[in-house]
Design a protein around this nucleic acid. Sequence first.
DNA 1: CGAGATTCTCTACGCCTGTAGTGATGATTG
DNA 2: CAATCATCACTACAGGCGTAGAGAATCTCG
Lengths: 207, 207
Amino acid sequence: MTIGKGARLDLIGDTAVNLLVERGMRGLTHRAVDEAAGLPPGSTSYYARTRAALLEVTLARMTVREAGEFAEAMASEGADGNPPDLAALLPTSREAVVDLLADIVSEAIRQGRDQKIARYELALEATRRPELRGAYDEAGRAFREASVGIMAAMGSQDPVRHGRFLVAWCEGIMFDSIAGAGWSVPPSRTDIAAGLGELLDGMLRAV
Amino acid sequence: MTIGKGARLDLIGDTAVNLLVERGMRGLTHRAVDEAAGLPPGSTSYYARTRAALLEVTLARMTVREAGEFAEAMASEGADGNPPDLAALLPTSREAVVDLLADIVSEAIRQGRDQKIARYELALEATRRPELRGAYDEAGRAFREASVGIMAAMGSQDPVRHGRFLVAWCEGIMFDSIAGAGWSVPPSRTDIAAGLGELLDGMLRAV
DNA sequence: CGAGATTCTCTACGCCTGTAGTGATGATTG
DNA sequence: CAATCATCACTACAGGCGTAGAGAATCTCG
């Protein structure tokens, strides 16, 4: 856990994520990471002795990167580097929620494509590797909890279900746009915002 | 294209799909298919000379299987085996639509898990293999077009966008339930139906 | 400065991979 | 029945894989 070792592991993790995107699970190998990262041959094999270890390093690194981006999206300006208090930043008005989520989804489709593909690849792998499941679930928890919190703050009658479905809707748009066959052209931010508005209206209308 | 060859290819395709689910992209190899299918060693290598060919066989087989299931879900009873006329069978009332889609999604999560995992795996691969993209896109087209048709029939102001978002919502629920971290317990059919109702209400409310 | 521990590099092993060629088998046709 | 041909089974090859261990380099501290 020295600082040097951490940096090396970060480099390996970053490189592994890129390989995952460019060449898929079959292209992510110890030797390929060495080569792509410009490390001496055998390095990755040393830092991640088994394949399972390599996947854990990859997932851990991806989680760190994503957490940073998420916090960034929430607060354009944070006093210290770390998320100050996410709960306090949650939007509660319909417009603010639509705005924030439309930003996140639209950005993910356009700039965050690689990040998402790596995540899908690891999600599928976690299907078969219980040791990855925990870390994977942890990774998206903040986002899911924020979603439930938002729905509760907006007066939802069933914030847990609504929060989950809100995340699922976003996830579906992103998956279809990135890996699926839904769109020849990805949906515009305007379309996404319109869809989000409709979904929220449906969820929040009087029972 | 003799009948014998077709059967052999179908067996290879089916086995390949299973391997994709159980062991992922790294576990799908010519030799593994031979072994799992009980074919003499080298057979898969003969029917699909390259890896790209093997993936195409796999995707083609999956598409055929899915098309059968989709037609089945639409018409509990079909005169002949082939889909008689999907367009004529589209539901148009809110209740009927909610019912049909809740069935499909709930069934996919509970019984169709493997089918979906294989599909996600190939979707990701198609990200890097243009030759798979076409076949993949084709595979889900009927479903997507049906969705747009349904929204149009229900009086949507923007049936294309609404149809796509409806599919995306379903896709998101399925992905999160199967490969994602959304639920410790998958959503019940009741929850799914409730969510679908809310989504449709939001989309169809007066502008 | 020098001994000991740590960190890293390099190499070797056995196994599995995609791919292609070669010969056996069985059907088809004259 | 014999010749032709497509179909298939089998084998070979060159390269890549995960993994582990032995030694070099570097750092730590008396």
